[in-house]
Every structure is written in structure tokens, then in C-alpha cells.
Design a binder for these strands. Structure first.
Lengths: 145, 145
DNA sequence: TGTGAAAAGATCTAGGT
DNA sequence: ACCTAGATCTTTTCACA
């Protein structure tokens, strides 16, 4: 992970669709050398994927919430392989504290959100905090000073 | 937003670096037609960007936390344009409830995390929950049934 | 690790249905 | 809105430093 790798990460985090030749211009390296370095960043698991980001509101997901689950024991949500497949569940974090996990949930309506909460109730006690807006939806990973 | 748009969104969320010709094979449409539809999805703000995702642990960010900020009033964190620029702050959500916002923070060490908390203390009361692991780091936005 | 050059493949533009 | 086709640009491969 030298300065060149960080330069490539910076560019690919900002725009994952940049061509190798455009990348090569920006970091001052030949296209094959860029391709080789990017391949290694992928192989070493530094880059975990390239994803288009989608505006939730513009795709009909008007209700977004952070749901804190308290469900220690055999019924814990984290033990069920199926939950990460629910399309309303965008992220799951296992956390310290009174709760066991935090989920980011996005549904089309409050009614749809209610049925997700009902389904989550099988695993433990859900506690919901509604997201009003997202002042910072995403920030690239940069080298820390 | 017809079935073809959803097919393109599905593919570009799974792999943002797919070429238009590879996309055209997968959705059974000519490359120029694919390019035109993708251009419109970008223009309409449905697609907000294409981003390489980076493994935080493999880039030296060993401490991840969800920090809930209670800071209503003139000193509120959400009023300071500078905070979204801090490299340790990966996401900011404005939320309902006793708190005003939730931040996802990633630092190299507990010591570095402590200094971020100290800096956040200027805006209000931070309450930290540590992230032990991330069973679901990301889920694509799919059309809901 | 890196480069340069040639083959293979992708994109863009134009004209047509 | 979509397709085809040709010109241009990009990616990939490979010999070599």
C-alpha cells in the first residue's frame, strides 16, 4: 500500500467506472501497470467490489430507519442466514452494548416498515430510529494523516 | 423505471465496472440502447455514483463505531460544514429521537478514536457503540415485491 | 514492477426502422 | 426507443528491461 495504491483507491472510490487508460493519465503510470496494481488490490481484498449507488427516495423507498435489535440467545437475528437476504435490510452491524445488532432498513411506506418490524420481532426486541435525511451518505476511505 | 432499468441497476450495483457491451449481453439490448438508459438513470439522479468499496480493516482502520450525537441548538454538528470532511467520519444520518444524528466513524486505533470523540464533544454529547463485525456490509437496492 | 506495441474488444456517432 | 455499422479509442497480452 504505497502512495500509488492510495492514488488509485482515491480515483476508483470517486468513480469506479474510470478506464485504465484514464486512471493511467491521472496517476502517471502506464495502463498495464495500473491494471496490474488494481488486480492486486482486488486480490488482496483491499477492494471488496465496485457498486453503483442508488438514491433510495427516487426508487420508491421513502422510509429509512436505523433499527437496533436486542436479541441475545438462540433466537438471535445474527444466527439466521435468511435475514441478510431481506430486500428491505440494507446493512447489518454487530455491536457492543445492550443491543446485539443495528440494521439500516429502507421500505416504500410506513405500512411496509411496520411489517418488517413485525418480522424482526420474532428474533428479539426492535427499537427504531427514523432517518430524516442523510447529510453525508458516503465518504471515501483516505489515508489517515 | 421499467423492468429493463431495474435489470441494469441490478447489474451495475453488483459490478459497477461492467462494460456497456457486457451489460447489453446480460439484459438483451444493444450497447447504444444500454448506454442511453444508463445515462438517463444518472441524469435523473437514480444512480448517484459508482464507487469502489474498500475493506476498512485492510487499510488500517481497526476501530469502527456508531456514534450517536445529542447536540440540538446553535452548536449542532449538522450546522458545521466541516464535519462531513473529517476522514474518520464515513456516514452521517439525521435522525428522530433524543439524538440529532448518528455517525459511522472508522479510525486506526482506540487512541485515534478517543481524539475524534474529543473533537465531537464540542458539538454536543457523543454516545459510542462499537462495531464488532459487519455481517451485511451492503445490500443492493432491488424492486420490492 | 515496470514499459511498449500489436491484437482483440468496447465505445461513439450517424443514419435508418 | 431501438438497431446496425464503421471510425476511434481502450483493454489485454506478451516480449523484454
Amino acid at each position: 500500500m504505497d502512495a500509488m495504491d492510495w492514488a488509485l483507491l482515491r480515483e476508483l472510490q470517486a468513480d469506479a467506472r474510470l478506464s485504465y487508460s484514464e486512471l493511467s493519465r491521472r496517476v502517471h503510470l502506464s495502463p498495464p501497470a495500473v491494471a496490474e496494481r488494481v488486480r492486486r488490490l482486488e486480490e488482496n481484498g483491499v477492494v471488496t467490489g465496485y457498486h453503483a449507488h442508488v438514491d433510495l427516495a427516487r426508487t420508491g423507498r421513502d422510509v429509512i430507519a436505523l433499527v437496533t435489535m436486542s436479541c441475545y440467545g438462540a433466537t438471535c437475528l445474527l444466527l439466521d442466514e435468511a435475514v441478510p437476504g431481506w430486500p428491505e435490510v440494507m446493512e447489518i452491524y454487530r455491536v457492543t452494548g445492550d443491543a446485539c445488532s443495528v440494521l439500516r432498513v429502507a421500505t416504500a411506506s410506513m405500512e411496509a416498515f411496520e411489517t418488517v418490524i413485525d418480522r424482526l420481532g420474532k428474533y428479539g426486541q426492535p427499537s427504531s430510529t427514523m432517518v430524516l435525511s442523510t447529510p453525508l451518505p458516503w465518504q471515501p476511505v483516505l489515508p489517515l494523516p
